[in-house]
Design a protein around this nucleic acid. Structure first.
Lengths: 247, 247
DNA sequence: GCTATTCTCGTACATCGTACGGATAAAGAG
DNA sequence: CTCTTTATCCGTACGATGTACGAGAATAGC
Protein backbone atom coordinates (compact mmCIF):
# COMPACT_ATOMS: atom_id res chain seq x y z
CA UNK A 1 0.00 0.00 0.00
CA UNK A 2 2.81 2.39 0.82
CA UNK A 3 6.23 2.96 -0.51
CA UNK A 4 8.30 3.49 2.61
CA UNK A 5 10.28 6.64 2.63
CA UNK A 6 13.51 5.78 4.37
CA UNK A 7 14.86 8.80 6.15
CA UNK A 8 17.44 6.98 8.18
CA UNK A 9 20.48 7.31 5.99
CA UNK A 10 19.46 10.40 4.10
CA UNK A 11 22.32 12.78 3.38
CA UNK A 12 21.01 15.57 5.65
CA UNK A 13 20.58 18.32 3.14
CA UNK A 14 20.68 21.13 5.67
CA UNK A 15 17.46 22.70 6.91
CA UNK A 16 15.21 20.14 5.23
CA UNK A 17 14.30 20.86 1.65
CA UNK A 18 12.20 17.87 2.57
CA UNK A 19 8.96 16.71 0.99
CA UNK A 20 6.82 16.50 4.09
CA UNK A 21 3.69 14.51 3.41
CA UNK A 22 2.38 14.02 -0.10
CA UNK A 23 -1.31 15.03 0.02
CA UNK A 24 -2.20 13.25 -3.21
CA UNK A 25 -0.96 9.89 -1.97
CA UNK A 26 -2.47 10.42 1.45
CA UNK A 27 -5.92 11.81 0.79
CA UNK A 28 -6.74 10.89 -2.81
CA UNK A 29 -5.26 7.38 -3.13
CA UNK A 30 -6.60 4.55 -3.42
CA UNK A 31 -9.31 1.90 -3.25
CA UNK A 32 -8.86 -1.49 -1.56
CA UNK A 33 -6.84 -3.79 -3.76
CA UNK A 34 -8.74 -6.88 -4.96
CA UNK A 35 -6.11 -9.38 -3.98
CA UNK A 36 -4.16 -10.27 -0.88
CA UNK A 37 -4.82 -10.53 2.82
CA UNK A 38 -7.56 -8.38 4.34
CA UNK A 39 -6.49 -5.57 6.66
CA UNK A 40 -7.05 -6.47 10.29
CA UNK A 41 -7.29 -2.89 11.55
CA UNK A 42 -8.26 0.39 9.98
CA UNK A 43 -6.75 3.80 9.50
CA UNK A 44 -9.75 5.21 11.30
CA UNK A 45 -9.23 3.03 14.39
CA UNK A 46 -5.50 3.65 14.49
CA UNK A 47 -5.96 7.39 14.18
CA UNK A 48 -8.62 7.41 16.88
CA UNK A 49 -6.33 5.48 19.23
CA UNK A 50 -3.51 7.92 18.60
CA UNK A 51 -5.81 10.86 19.30
CA UNK A 52 -7.07 9.30 22.51
CA UNK A 53 -3.51 8.75 23.60
CA UNK A 54 -2.50 12.33 22.83
CA UNK A 55 -5.55 13.68 24.66
CA UNK A 56 -4.80 11.60 27.73
CA UNK A 57 -1.01 11.75 27.95
CA UNK A 58 0.20 14.37 25.53
CA UNK A 59 1.79 14.22 22.11
CA UNK A 60 5.01 12.69 23.35
CA UNK A 61 3.10 9.60 24.48
CA UNK A 62 2.12 8.98 20.88
CA UNK A 63 4.73 6.49 19.77
CA UNK A 64 4.31 3.89 17.08
CA UNK A 65 4.63 1.12 19.66
CA UNK A 66 2.11 2.65 22.07
CA UNK A 67 -0.48 3.28 19.39
CA UNK A 68 -0.02 -0.19 17.97
CA UNK A 69 -0.41 -1.74 21.40
CA UNK A 70 -3.55 0.31 21.94
CA UNK A 71 -5.25 -1.15 18.87
CA UNK A 72 -3.82 -4.60 19.58
CA UNK A 73 -1.46 -4.68 16.64
CA UNK A 74 2.24 -5.28 16.31
CA UNK A 75 4.27 -2.12 15.98
CA UNK A 76 5.24 -2.63 12.38
CA UNK A 77 1.67 -3.19 11.30
CA UNK A 78 0.96 0.50 11.54
CA UNK A 79 3.16 1.05 8.53
CA UNK A 80 0.54 -0.58 6.35
CA UNK A 81 -1.78 2.27 7.23
CA UNK A 82 0.54 5.25 7.20
CA UNK A 83 4.00 5.50 5.67
CA UNK A 84 5.55 7.20 8.68
CA UNK A 85 4.85 8.99 11.91
CA UNK A 86 4.60 12.40 10.32
CA UNK A 87 1.69 11.10 8.33
CA UNK A 88 0.07 9.70 11.44
CA UNK A 89 0.16 13.19 12.91
CA UNK A 90 -1.43 14.49 9.74
CA UNK A 91 -4.20 11.93 10.14
CA UNK A 92 -4.70 12.88 13.78
CA UNK A 93 -5.03 16.57 12.96
CA UNK A 94 -7.63 15.98 10.29
CA UNK A 95 -9.43 13.46 12.45
CA UNK A 96 -10.07 15.87 15.30
CA UNK A 97 -10.89 18.66 12.88
CA UNK A 98 -13.87 16.52 11.96
CA UNK A 99 -15.34 17.45 15.34
CA UNK A 100 -15.80 21.05 14.22
CA UNK A 101 -19.16 21.95 12.71
CA UNK A 102 -18.54 22.77 9.07
CA UNK A 103 -21.99 23.99 8.03
CA UNK A 104 -22.20 27.61 7.09
CA UNK A 105 -25.44 29.41 7.89
CA UNK A 106 -25.69 32.22 5.38
CA UNK A 107 -26.90 35.69 6.14
CA UNK A 108 -25.97 37.73 9.18
CA UNK A 109 -22.76 39.51 9.98
CA UNK A 110 -19.67 37.95 8.43
CA UNK A 111 -17.41 39.39 11.10
CA UNK A 112 -19.50 37.77 13.80
CA UNK A 113 -19.36 34.48 11.94
CA UNK A 114 -15.57 34.72 11.68
CA UNK A 115 -15.34 35.40 15.39
CA UNK A 116 -17.54 32.42 16.10
CA UNK A 117 -15.21 30.29 13.98
CA UNK A 118 -12.20 31.43 15.96
CA UNK A 119 -13.95 30.72 19.26
CA UNK A 120 -14.77 27.25 18.00
CA UNK A 121 -11.13 26.72 17.16
CA UNK A 122 -9.99 27.88 20.56
CA UNK A 123 -12.36 25.57 22.40
CA UNK A 124 -11.29 22.77 20.11
CA UNK A 125 -7.60 23.30 20.78
CA UNK A 126 -8.21 23.48 24.51
CA UNK A 127 -9.94 20.12 24.24
CA UNK A 128 -6.93 18.72 22.35
CA UNK A 129 -3.98 20.57 23.86
CA UNK A 130 -1.52 18.86 21.52
CA UNK A 131 -3.24 20.31 18.49
CA UNK A 132 -1.45 23.65 18.24
CA UNK A 133 1.92 21.91 18.22
CA UNK A 134 0.79 19.26 15.74
CA UNK A 135 -0.71 21.92 13.49
CA UNK A 136 2.37 24.08 13.24
CA UNK A 137 3.34 24.75 9.67
CA UNK A 138 1.08 22.10 8.16
CA UNK A 139 0.11 22.77 4.55
CA UNK A 140 -1.78 19.73 3.34
CA UNK A 141 -5.32 19.99 4.66
CA UNK A 142 -7.26 16.75 4.80
CA UNK A 143 -10.94 16.40 4.01
CA UNK A 144 -12.21 17.60 7.38
CA UNK A 145 -9.88 20.55 7.37
CA UNK A 146 -11.00 21.39 3.85
CA UNK A 147 -14.63 21.21 4.91
CA UNK A 148 -13.96 23.64 7.72
CA UNK A 149 -11.98 25.87 5.37
CA UNK A 150 -14.97 25.80 3.05
CA UNK A 151 -17.10 27.15 5.86
CA UNK A 152 -14.65 29.93 6.59
CA UNK A 153 -14.48 30.89 2.93
CA UNK A 154 -18.25 30.95 2.73
CA UNK A 155 -18.33 33.20 5.76
CA UNK A 156 -15.84 35.51 4.10
CA UNK A 157 -17.83 35.79 0.89
CA UNK A 158 -19.56 39.07 1.86
CA UNK A 159 -16.24 40.59 2.88
CA UNK A 160 -15.30 41.37 -0.69
CA UNK A 161 -11.77 40.07 -0.16
CA UNK A 162 -10.23 38.28 -3.11
CA UNK A 163 -9.30 34.59 -3.09
CA UNK A 164 -5.73 34.83 -1.89
CA UNK A 165 -6.73 37.27 0.83
CA UNK A 166 -9.48 34.98 2.09
CA UNK A 167 -7.08 32.06 2.33
CA UNK A 168 -4.60 34.26 4.11
CA UNK A 169 -7.19 35.45 6.61
CA UNK A 170 -8.04 31.88 7.49
CA UNK A 171 -4.40 30.87 7.84
CA UNK A 172 -3.54 33.88 9.96
CA UNK A 173 -6.58 33.42 12.11
CA UNK A 174 -5.72 29.79 12.76
CA UNK A 175 -2.12 30.68 13.52
CA UNK A 176 -3.30 33.37 15.90
CA UNK A 177 -5.61 31.03 17.76
CA UNK A 178 -2.92 28.35 17.96
CA UNK A 179 -0.42 30.87 19.32
CA UNK A 180 -2.88 32.09 21.90
CA UNK A 181 -3.85 28.62 23.02
CA UNK A 182 -0.24 27.50 23.32
CA UNK A 183 0.35 30.40 25.67
CA UNK A 184 -2.91 29.80 27.51
CA UNK A 185 -2.13 26.13 28.07
CA UNK A 186 1.33 26.90 29.39
CA UNK A 187 -0.18 29.34 31.83
CA UNK A 188 -2.80 26.86 32.95
CA UNK A 189 -0.15 24.18 33.45
CA UNK A 190 1.86 26.55 35.62
CA UNK A 191 -1.20 27.34 37.69
CA UNK A 192 -1.73 23.66 38.33
CA UNK A 193 1.67 23.38 39.98
CA UNK A 194 1.90 25.65 43.03
CA UNK A 195 5.60 24.97 43.51
CA UNK A 196 6.40 26.03 40.03
CA UNK A 197 4.20 29.10 40.20
CA UNK A 198 5.90 30.17 43.42
CA UNK A 199 9.33 29.64 41.88
CA UNK A 200 8.37 31.80 38.92
CA UNK A 201 7.06 34.52 41.18
CA UNK A 202 10.19 34.47 43.35
CA UNK A 203 12.35 34.64 40.25
CA UNK A 204 10.55 37.64 38.77
CA UNK A 205 10.54 39.38 42.14
CA UNK A 206 14.28 38.87 42.41
CA UNK A 207 14.83 40.30 38.95
CA UNK A 208 12.58 43.25 39.67
CA UNK A 209 14.56 43.93 42.85
CA UNK A 210 17.88 44.27 41.01
CA UNK A 211 17.17 47.87 39.99
CA UNK A 212 17.77 47.26 36.29
CA UNK A 213 14.16 46.43 35.51
CA UNK A 214 12.06 49.37 36.63
CA UNK A 215 9.17 48.65 34.27
CA UNK A 216 8.94 45.05 35.37
CA UNK A 217 9.10 46.16 39.01
CA UNK A 218 6.22 48.51 38.49
CA UNK A 219 4.18 45.91 36.68
CA UNK A 220 4.64 43.47 39.51
CA UNK A 221 3.73 45.95 42.24
CA UNK A 222 0.74 47.35 40.33
CA UNK A 223 -0.61 44.49 38.29
CA UNK A 224 -4.16 45.82 38.05
CA UNK A 225 -7.08 43.53 37.51
CA UNK A 226 -6.18 39.97 36.60
CA UNK A 227 -7.25 38.91 33.12
CA UNK A 228 -8.95 35.70 32.14
CA UNK A 229 -7.56 34.01 29.03
CA UNK A 230 -11.06 34.07 27.62
CA UNK A 231 -11.29 37.85 27.93
CA UNK A 232 -7.83 38.41 26.51
CA UNK A 233 -8.56 36.16 23.58
CA UNK A 234 -11.84 37.85 22.76
CA UNK A 235 -10.24 41.24 22.98
CA UNK A 236 -7.41 40.52 20.58
CA UNK A 237 -9.62 38.57 18.28
CA UNK A 238 -12.03 41.46 17.98
CA UNK A 239 -9.16 43.80 17.20
CA UNK A 240 -8.01 41.51 14.46
CA UNK A 241 -11.37 40.98 12.82
CA UNK A 242 -13.06 44.34 13.23
CA UNK A 243 -10.21 45.90 11.33
CA UNK A 244 -10.54 43.59 8.35
CA UNK A 245 -11.65 45.25 5.17
CA UNK A 246 -10.94 45.31 1.48
CA UNK A 247 -8.97 48.52 1.15
CA UNK B 1 26.95 21.99 39.76
CA UNK B 2 23.64 20.43 38.78
CA UNK B 3 21.41 17.93 40.38
CA UNK B 4 20.35 15.75 37.49
CA UNK B 5 16.66 15.37 37.08
CA UNK B 6 16.14 11.85 35.87
CA UNK B 7 13.05 11.64 33.72
CA UNK B 8 13.70 8.16 32.46
CA UNK B 9 11.71 6.09 34.87
CA UNK B 10 9.26 8.71 35.97
CA UNK B 11 5.78 7.36 36.63
CA UNK B 12 4.17 9.24 33.71
CA UNK B 13 1.65 11.30 35.57
CA UNK B 14 -0.59 11.95 32.60
CA UNK B 15 -0.28 15.22 30.68
CA UNK B 16 2.82 16.39 32.51
CA UNK B 17 2.17 18.24 35.72
CA UNK B 18 5.92 18.62 35.24
CA UNK B 19 8.13 21.39 36.50
CA UNK B 20 9.79 22.40 33.25
CA UNK B 21 12.90 24.43 33.94
CA UNK B 22 13.48 26.09 37.28
CA UNK B 23 14.31 29.73 36.51
CA UNK B 24 15.88 30.39 39.89
CA UNK B 25 18.40 27.59 39.54
CA UNK B 26 19.07 28.46 35.93
CA UNK B 27 19.35 32.22 35.85
CA UNK B 28 20.08 33.28 39.41
CA UNK B 29 22.41 30.51 40.64
CA UNK B 30 25.48 30.50 41.33
CA UNK B 31 29.07 31.67 41.41
CA UNK B 32 32.00 29.42 40.53
CA UNK B 33 32.70 27.03 43.36
CA UNK B 34 36.11 27.56 44.99
CA UNK B 35 37.13 23.93 44.88
CA UNK B 36 37.43 21.28 42.23
CA UNK B 37 38.54 21.04 38.65
CA UNK B 38 38.19 24.09 36.42
CA UNK B 39 35.59 23.95 33.65
CA UNK B 40 37.15 23.35 30.24
CA UNK B 41 34.29 24.86 28.25
CA UNK B 42 31.64 27.45 28.98
CA UNK B 43 27.91 27.70 28.93
CA UNK B 44 28.28 30.58 26.52
CA UNK B 45 30.32 28.56 24.02
CA UNK B 46 28.08 25.54 24.26
CA UNK B 47 24.97 27.62 23.74
CA UNK B 48 26.52 29.42 20.78
CA UNK B 49 27.45 26.11 19.18
CA UNK B 50 23.92 24.81 19.65
CA UNK B 51 22.50 27.96 18.09
CA UNK B 52 24.85 27.74 15.12
CA UNK B 53 23.81 24.15 14.61
CA UNK B 54 20.12 24.98 14.75
CA UNK B 55 20.57 27.87 12.34
CA UNK B 56 22.43 25.70 9.86
CA UNK B 57 20.60 22.40 10.08
CA UNK B 58 17.41 22.94 12.03
CA UNK B 59 16.37 22.18 15.59
CA UNK B 60 16.39 18.43 15.10
CA UNK B 61 20.13 18.55 14.40
CA UNK B 62 20.68 19.86 17.92
CA UNK B 63 21.50 16.70 19.82
CA UNK B 64 23.64 16.50 22.90
CA UNK B 65 26.25 14.51 21.02
CA UNK B 66 26.40 16.87 18.05
CA UNK B 67 26.69 19.97 20.20
CA UNK B 68 29.36 18.35 22.36
CA UNK B 69 31.34 17.31 19.29
CA UNK B 70 31.05 20.85 17.95
CA UNK B 71 32.73 22.32 21.02
CA UNK B 72 35.20 19.44 21.24
CA UNK B 73 33.77 17.92 24.40
CA UNK B 74 32.54 14.48 25.29
CA UNK B 75 28.81 14.12 25.19
CA UNK B 76 28.34 13.76 28.91
CA UNK B 77 30.34 16.88 29.65
CA UNK B 78 27.47 19.07 28.58
CA UNK B 79 25.59 18.01 31.68
CA UNK B 80 27.96 20.04 33.79
CA UNK B 81 26.65 23.15 32.06
CA UNK B 82 22.95 22.38 31.76
CA UNK B 83 20.96 19.77 33.63
CA UNK B 84 19.10 18.55 30.55
CA UNK B 85 18.27 19.29 26.94
CA UNK B 86 15.19 21.33 27.76
CA UNK B 87 17.45 23.70 29.62
CA UNK B 88 19.81 23.89 26.68
CA UNK B 89 16.88 25.03 24.54
CA UNK B 90 16.08 27.63 27.17
CA UNK B 91 19.65 28.87 26.97
CA UNK B 92 19.50 28.98 23.18
CA UNK B 93 16.33 31.04 23.17
CA UNK B 94 17.70 33.60 25.55
CA UNK B 95 21.03 33.65 23.75
CA UNK B 96 19.56 34.69 20.41
CA UNK B 97 17.19 37.10 22.08
CA UNK B 98 20.33 38.98 23.04
CA UNK B 99 20.61 40.00 19.39
CA UNK B 100 17.53 42.18 19.69
CA UNK B 101 18.10 45.83 20.56
CA UNK B 102 16.66 46.37 24.01
CA UNK B 103 17.05 50.15 24.34
CA UNK B 104 13.85 52.10 24.48
CA UNK B 105 13.87 55.55 22.92
CA UNK B 106 11.21 57.50 24.75
CA UNK B 107 8.82 59.91 23.14
CA UNK B 108 6.98 59.35 19.91
CA UNK B 109 4.04 57.16 19.15
CA UNK B 110 3.77 54.11 21.36
CA UNK B 111 1.80 52.19 18.75
CA UNK B 112 4.53 52.77 16.21
CA UNK B 113 7.11 51.58 18.71
CA UNK B 114 5.11 48.42 19.39
CA UNK B 115 4.86 47.76 15.67
CA UNK B 116 8.59 48.25 15.33
CA UNK B 117 9.11 45.72 18.10
CA UNK B 118 6.97 43.18 16.31
CA UNK B 119 8.82 43.73 13.04
CA UNK B 120 12.08 43.19 14.87
CA UNK B 121 10.75 39.94 16.26
CA UNK B 122 9.61 38.76 12.86
CA UNK B 123 12.99 39.45 11.25
CA UNK B 124 14.67 37.77 14.18
CA UNK B 125 12.58 34.63 13.88
CA UNK B 126 13.16 34.47 10.14
CA UNK B 127 16.87 34.58 10.86
CA UNK B 128 16.48 31.74 13.37
CA UNK B 129 13.68 29.63 11.90
CA UNK B 130 13.74 27.20 14.82
CA UNK B 131 12.90 29.97 17.25
CA UNK B 132 9.09 29.89 17.04
CA UNK B 133 9.07 26.19 17.82
CA UNK B 134 11.62 26.54 20.62
CA UNK B 135 9.69 29.46 22.08
CA UNK B 136 6.33 27.75 22.26
CA UNK B 137 4.84 27.93 25.72
CA UNK B 138 8.03 29.06 27.44
CA UNK B 139 7.44 30.93 30.68
CA UNK B 140 10.82 31.51 32.26
CA UNK B 141 12.40 34.49 30.49
CA UNK B 142 16.16 34.73 30.77
CA UNK B 143 18.09 37.98 31.16
CA UNK B 144 18.04 38.92 27.48
CA UNK B 145 14.37 38.16 27.18
CA UNK B 146 13.71 40.23 30.28
CA UNK B 147 15.68 43.12 28.83
CA UNK B 148 13.59 43.01 25.71
CA UNK B 149 10.42 42.73 27.77
CA UNK B 150 11.58 45.77 29.67
CA UNK B 151 11.74 47.67 26.39
CA UNK B 152 8.25 46.57 25.41
CA UNK B 153 6.88 47.58 28.80
CA UNK B 154 8.54 50.97 28.51
CA UNK B 155 7.00 51.41 25.10
CA UNK B 156 3.59 50.56 26.53
CA UNK B 157 3.86 53.07 29.34
CA UNK B 158 1.94 55.83 27.50
CA UNK B 159 -0.80 53.36 26.62
CA UNK B 160 -2.35 53.60 30.04
CA UNK B 161 -2.82 49.85 30.25
CA UNK B 162 -2.34 48.31 33.67
CA UNK B 163 0.45 45.90 34.53
CA UNK B 164 -1.23 42.62 33.76
CA UNK B 165 -2.58 44.00 30.50
CA UNK B 166 0.87 45.17 29.40
CA UNK B 167 2.34 41.74 30.06
CA UNK B 168 -0.51 40.18 28.18
CA UNK B 169 -0.04 42.44 25.19
CA UNK B 170 3.59 41.45 24.97
CA UNK B 171 2.83 37.76 25.28
CA UNK B 172 0.06 37.88 22.71
CA UNK B 173 2.14 39.90 20.34
CA UNK B 174 5.01 37.45 20.57
CA UNK B 175 2.67 34.51 20.10
CA UNK B 176 1.13 36.23 17.10
CA UNK B 177 4.50 36.86 15.48
CA UNK B 178 5.61 33.30 16.16
CA UNK B 179 2.43 31.94 14.64
CA UNK B 180 2.81 34.08 11.58
CA UNK B 181 6.46 33.21 11.07
CA UNK B 182 5.79 29.48 11.47
CA UNK B 183 3.27 29.75 8.67
CA UNK B 184 5.53 31.96 6.60
CA UNK B 185 8.46 29.59 6.89
CA UNK B 186 6.34 26.60 5.89
CA UNK B 187 5.20 28.51 2.83
CA UNK B 188 8.73 29.49 1.92
CA UNK B 189 9.92 25.89 2.31
CA UNK B 190 7.17 24.72 -0.02
CA UNK B 191 8.14 27.32 -2.58
CA UNK B 192 11.68 26.06 -2.53
CA UNK B 193 10.56 22.62 -3.64
CA UNK B 194 8.83 22.79 -7.06
CA UNK B 195 7.76 19.15 -6.90
CA UNK B 196 6.03 19.62 -3.63
CA UNK B 197 4.39 22.85 -4.71
CA UNK B 198 3.08 21.17 -7.84
CA UNK B 199 1.75 18.25 -5.80
CA UNK B 200 -0.06 20.63 -3.46
CA UNK B 201 -1.56 22.51 -6.40
CA UNK B 202 -2.72 19.31 -8.09
CA UNK B 203 -4.24 18.11 -4.85
CA UNK B 204 -6.21 21.29 -4.25
CA UNK B 205 -7.32 21.37 -7.87
CA UNK B 206 -8.57 17.81 -7.58
CA UNK B 207 -10.51 18.65 -4.43
CA UNK B 208 -11.97 21.77 -6.02
CA UNK B 209 -13.10 19.69 -9.01
CA UNK B 210 -15.15 17.30 -6.88
CA UNK B 211 -18.10 19.67 -6.70
CA UNK B 212 -18.30 19.65 -2.90
CA UNK B 213 -16.01 22.62 -2.42
CA UNK B 214 -17.47 25.51 -4.38
CA UNK B 215 -15.79 28.20 -2.30
CA UNK B 216 -12.39 26.63 -2.67
CA UNK B 217 -12.99 26.23 -6.41
CA UNK B 218 -13.79 29.88 -6.75
CA UNK B 219 -10.78 30.92 -4.71
CA UNK B 220 -8.50 28.86 -6.91
CA UNK B 221 -9.92 30.18 -10.17
CA UNK B 222 -9.97 33.80 -8.99
CA UNK B 223 -7.10 34.15 -6.58
CA UNK B 224 -6.65 37.89 -7.07
CA UNK B 225 -3.33 39.57 -6.45
CA UNK B 226 -0.74 37.41 -4.71
CA UNK B 227 0.24 38.59 -1.25
CA UNK B 228 3.73 38.90 0.14
CA UNK B 229 4.19 37.56 3.68
CA UNK B 230 5.59 40.95 4.60
CA UNK B 231 2.43 42.73 3.50
CA UNK B 232 0.15 40.23 5.19
CA UNK B 233 2.09 40.49 8.40
CA UNK B 234 2.04 44.26 8.44
CA UNK B 235 -1.67 44.29 7.73
CA UNK B 236 -2.64 41.99 10.55
CA UNK B 237 -0.18 43.55 12.92
CA UNK B 238 -1.64 46.98 12.32
CA UNK B 239 -5.13 45.64 12.96
CA UNK B 240 -3.97 44.19 16.22
CA UNK B 241 -2.17 47.24 17.51
CA UNK B 242 -4.29 50.10 16.22
CA UNK B 243 -7.22 48.65 18.09
CA UNK B 244 -5.42 48.57 21.42
CA UNK B 245 -6.77 50.91 24.03
CA UNK B 246 -7.62 51.07 27.68
CA UNK B 247 -11.41 50.84 27.55
C1' DG C 1 -4.32 -26.50 -5.91
C1' DC C 2 -1.11 -22.77 -7.63
C1' DT C 3 0.42 -18.31 -7.76
C1' DA C 4 0.34 -13.50 -7.18
C1' DT C 5 -0.66 -10.19 -4.03
C1' DT C 6 -1.17 -7.95 0.34
C1' DC C 7 -1.04 -7.61 5.14
C1' DT C 8 1.20 -9.04 9.87
C1' DC C 9 4.81 -8.53 12.85
C1' DG C 10 9.39 -10.50 15.15
C1' DT C 11 13.94 -9.07 14.82
C1' DA C 12 17.51 -5.79 14.25
C1' DC C 13 19.85 -1.36 13.90
C1' DA C 14 21.09 3.50 14.32
C1' DT C 15 20.29 7.20 17.25
C1' DC C 16 18.54 9.60 21.12
C1' DG C 17 18.63 11.43 26.17
C1' DT C 18 20.98 10.49 30.07
C1' DA C 19 22.34 7.40 34.60
C1' DC C 20 26.49 5.66 36.55
C1' DG C 21 31.00 5.77 38.16
C1' DG C 22 36.01 5.92 37.61
C1' DA C 23 39.67 9.08 36.26
C1' DT C 24 41.46 13.68 36.60
C1' DA C 25 42.35 18.15 38.31
C1' DA C 26 42.15 22.01 41.49
C1' DA C 27 42.04 24.04 46.11
C1' DG C 28 42.11 23.94 51.23
C1' DA C 29 43.91 21.57 55.52
C1' DG C 30 47.49 19.44 57.93
C1' DC D 1 54.72 18.53 50.80
C1' DT D 2 50.78 15.10 51.30
C1' DC D 3 45.97 14.23 52.05
C1' DT D 4 41.21 15.14 51.52
C1' DT D 5 37.43 17.29 49.38
C1' DT D 6 35.12 18.74 45.60
C1' DA D 7 34.09 19.65 40.45
C1' DT D 8 34.57 18.47 36.15
C1' DC D 9 35.47 15.15 32.24
C1' DC D 10 33.84 11.49 29.73
C1' DG D 11 33.68 6.14 28.37
C1' DT D 12 30.27 2.83 28.84
C1' DA D 13 25.72 1.29 29.12
C1' DC D 14 20.56 1.29 29.20
C1' DG D 15 15.91 2.01 27.77
C1' DA D 16 13.23 4.05 24.16
C1' DT D 17 12.33 5.54 19.51
C1' DG D 18 11.52 5.39 14.28
C1' DT D 19 11.68 2.19 10.93
C1' DA D 20 14.25 -1.31 7.31
C1' DC D 21 14.04 -6.11 6.32
C1' DG D 22 12.04 -10.29 5.36
C1' DA D 23 9.74 -14.59 6.78
C1' DG D 24 5.09 -16.19 7.43
C1' DA D 25 -0.04 -15.97 6.82
C1' DA D 26 -4.19 -14.89 4.48
C1' DT D 27 -6.91 -13.87 0.31
C1' DA D 28 -8.35 -13.82 -4.68
C1' DG D 29 -8.10 -15.24 -9.48
C1' DC D 30 -6.50 -18.92 -12.45
Amino acid sequence: MWIMKGTRNMPRTGEAGAPGVDPEQLWLGSTRPRRGRKPAYSREAITAAAVALADAEGLEAVTIRRVAAEVGAGAMSLYSYAPDKETLLELMVDHVTGELPAEHTPGGDWRAELKAIAHLQRAHMLRHPWLPAALAGRRTPGPNTLAFLERALAALRPSGLDGAAKLEVFAQLTAFVAGHVTHEIAGAAALRSPDRLAAEARYLAAVAADGHHPELAEVLTAPGRPLTPEATFTRFLNRLIDGLDTE
